[in-house]
Design a protein around this nucleic acid. Structure first.
Lengths: 338, 338
DNA sequence: TACTTGGCTGGTAACGATAACATGGACGAA
DNA sequence: TTCGTCCATGTTATCGTTACCAGCCAAGTA
């Protein structure tokens, strides 16, 4: 009964509904002016034919894709996932869809990814972090669409920014630790070469220590980012052996911090009595583990939500010049520190 | 010096390089036959003009988007993230890109999402789970592209399947628990109405208990899925109060199981001496927490990897009929159970 | 009545790449 | 030499929708 038919087009729907293709097109748009009856007739015809709207043609002709391109370092990170979720929810109300890619914490990979994403002609592009290869910067600058850098406060932003200072956030934790009496404070992070946010946190740690007149020799690099719980635990082991007088540790993330806590538990070292531990990111585990974890809430969801709002404003032409939204992370004190 | 110029097209590049647009098109494809010199000249001209390849036009004309559409219940779940990552890595070698959406564990939302994704004309679509609304089934069936259901073994698959039996996996844990002497075993999960994989696990639990001649009155529903650590902890509190004679608990996920462990710690209840705990999913935390967590490895990455391979085979025409790849989850025994 | 105004609908020509087919020249075999 | 083959390149038409511009008609206004 059916030959290998091509899928129906708007023309087919138009024919069946007794209208022009142009009217079918309008019937599929929310705001377009079509009479109620006509729209219903068109949608009914479309349904009967099993018509599926073809975005590829729409994208080309209208020069709009309704894509928002997003790059994150890793898809397996609850912080970035929170940001993406809030961003996605925020823009989806306007029919915008996230086109997501991950860079593996590698600026070269970011370059490839950004180029690939820009070919899809997104309405805007959101990148995590403010450090890029020269070619990435050039691509983003010339893309002709809004560019939003997040999770960082770049000194020379490409366009818009929704972020916070990783260094400053860690500084506040150091200030607190010093205020309550810790002196031999260590820092556990990943190899600094790749994860720029992690490097900023470590730099903030060192600078803050210096400002308190303290040296910062206790630096453990636990491997290529992201640092897992396991790597955090291993780093804690190293730390305890190399610097037995350490009285507090700040970890680059809650995950590594939790790993560090468990390593102390396995070694029978009391947290926080013998050693205090701080994390970063306010992951769920930090609130529920025993002892609970002192950490920094960087408001990952807010970053996504405010990025979404920024994008909508820019696309609406409500924003003349590049926006700069600064988030102020919160120090959350819990049982793992005094 | 700059007017509001339109971005350059292939025609512009062709003109500058002294070739035809067709040759430019070929120069941008990997396999196309273009002489080395010509290709280099074209790419140089493109670079000088700041030309960015326009996928939207390519997509329409070639009727290929190189998208693989994927739906997952939540973007904040390490298991699904693992699957997506492996899938993405597996197909990206062939220039295929993931177009990701999440359903919030809601089949209605899945329906909306699937329709939206299909409009983008992906080369294939991967859905998590085997339960769908009738309309979703119809959309997928008629889409004319490979459909792969994952993380489940549907009785009536729409197309291909890469999954495992959630019920069977839990059954094996029950079998083990019973074999080592536990009798008063409880199950902590989410409200069954939405998360079908969670519901399958619970059903598997009840059936297995029955097969051992045991009742299964100890069922705690901890709220809408996904169940967080916190909800797992709360559920554990309820369980201890309502069924004090419980000697073992199986949780719908490692996250809720870890929450349950912490609740026991806060109440001074020894795990596994007073109560054994099992999780699901082999999240990193289960391997590192103290006590470490007995769990089920569902091989999330393998699901993604095998799905990628399946897609490539199907697109190459190497597969005549629907594929059915069955994963066999592994029971991992750790300290939280005897 | 004549003339706006505004809501709805239709016709035509793109959007920018590339599938399909054609062509021209280099090269080797007969 | 002559013909066939293959590689590199060009020409033409098209993918399916929608921007743009009209046109029509009913309702409101002077």
């Amino acid at each position: 009964m059916h030959n290998i038919r091509k899928p129906p087009t708007m023309a087919d729907v138009a024919h069946r509904a007794g209208v022009s293709p142009m009217t079918v097109s309008r019937a599929f748009k929310r705001e377009a002016s079509v009479s109620r009856e006509t729209r219903e007739a068109v949608l009914r015809a479309a349904d009967e034919l099993g018509y599926v709207f073809d975005s590829t043609a729409s994208n080309l002709r209208s020069q709009r894709t309704d894509f928002i391109a997003v790059t994150i370092p890793s898809i397996n990170n609850a912080n970035f996932a929170d940001t993406v979720r809030a961003l996605s929810d925020g823009v989806s109300e306007r029919g915008l869809q996230i086109l997501l890619g991950y860079t593996n914490y590698d600026v070269q990979e970011e370059e490839r990814l950004v180029e690939q994403l820009l070919r899809r002609k997104p309405e805007a592009i959101v990148v995590t972090g403010g450090k890029h290869t020269p070619r990435t910067r050039k691509l983003l600058t010339n893309a002709g669409i809004p560019v939003i850098e997040t999770w960082d406060l770049p000194e020379e932003p490409i366009g818009h920014v929704v972020g916070f200072s990783n260094a400053q956030a860690v500084r506040e934790m150091v200030d607190h630790f010093v205020a309550v009496g810790y002196r031999n404070i260590a820092f556990i992070g990943g190899d600094a070469s790749r994860d720029t946010r992690g490097a900023d946190r470590r730099a903030g740690f060192i600078a803050a220590m210096k400002d308190h007149g303290l040296d910062a020799p206790r630096l453990i690099a636990a491997g290529p980012p992201p640092i897992s719980m396991r790597e955090g635990a291993n780093a804690m082991g190293q730390l305890l052996e190399r610097f037995p007088d350490t009285d507090a540790v700040i970890c680059v993330s809650d995950l590594s911090a939790y790993g560090a806590i468990t390593e102390c538990q396995r070694r029978g070292i009391a947290v926080p009595e013998k050693i205090a531990i701080g994390g970063f990111g306010d992951y769920e585990i930090g609130a529920i583990c025993v002892p609970s974890l002192t950490t920094i809430n960087a408001f990952a969801s807010e970053i996504g939500g405010k990025t979404a709002k920024l994008i909508l404003d820019v696309l609406d032409g409500k924003l003349g010049e590049p926006g700069r939204v600064t988030i102020r992370p919160d120090l959350i004190l819990r049982q793992s520190s005094l």
